[in-house]
Design a binder for these strands. Structure first.
Length: 152
DNA sequence: GCCAACGTTGGC
DNA sequence: GCCAACGTTGGC
């Protein structure tokens, strides 16, 4: 089993949206970065654990945990002309973009703030805290996962 | 709202 | 295949 961190803007999809419907899988769509796409396509597997990270908002940090309940499949939003994620260059034969489904696991009692994560020597390799990082889907090592879990 | 850093595009 | 210009991300 692998560990991941997925970024989301809570105005779009927050941990509270997960918590509100804990039995309903969330379609993780709209990833439009090739490196992140490749992780979704090649490595994210059913049963993997995912930190849900809130970005571009007031309270920035890890807000909760989800798990993967459906592995890579074509992101439906790429074919939807009405979606902001529509991609004219995608075809059903050769889809460019990948979605997975997530299910709520837990909401952290206290959000783990970005500055807290940045302050930990054991997390210096975590892409999230590295300068200029823009990955919206990133791997988390087992050691990093346990470091972060220990903060809760 | 600013802007650094990075990714993507497209001309050559 | 280079690289300038442009677009996006995302913290501050």
């Amino acid at each position: 089993m692998n560990y991941w961190l997925f970024k989301t803007e809570p105005a779009e999809c927050s941990i509270d949206d997960f918590a509100r419907a804990p039995d309903t899988p969330i379609v993780w769509e709209g990833v439009r970065n090739y490196q992140a796409r490749n992780f979704l396509r090649d490595q994210v597997a059913i049963g993997d654990q995912v930190f849900i990270y809130h970005s571009s908002c007031k309270d920035i940090g890890i807000a909760g945990i989800a798990k993967v309940v459906k592995a890579a499949y074509p992101d439906p939003s790429q074919f939807d002309r009405n979606s902001i994620y529509f991609d004219q260059k995608s075809t059903t034969e050769q889809p460019r973009w990948i979605a997975v489904n997530l299910l709520f696991v837990s909401k952290l009692e206290q959000l783990i703030r970005l500055d807290k994560l940045k302050s930990l020597a054991t997390l210096i390799e975590l892409p999230l805290v590295r300068k200029g990082n823009r990955l919206s889907v990133m791997p988390v090592t087992r050691a990093e996962w346990q470091t972060i879990i220990a903060l809760t």
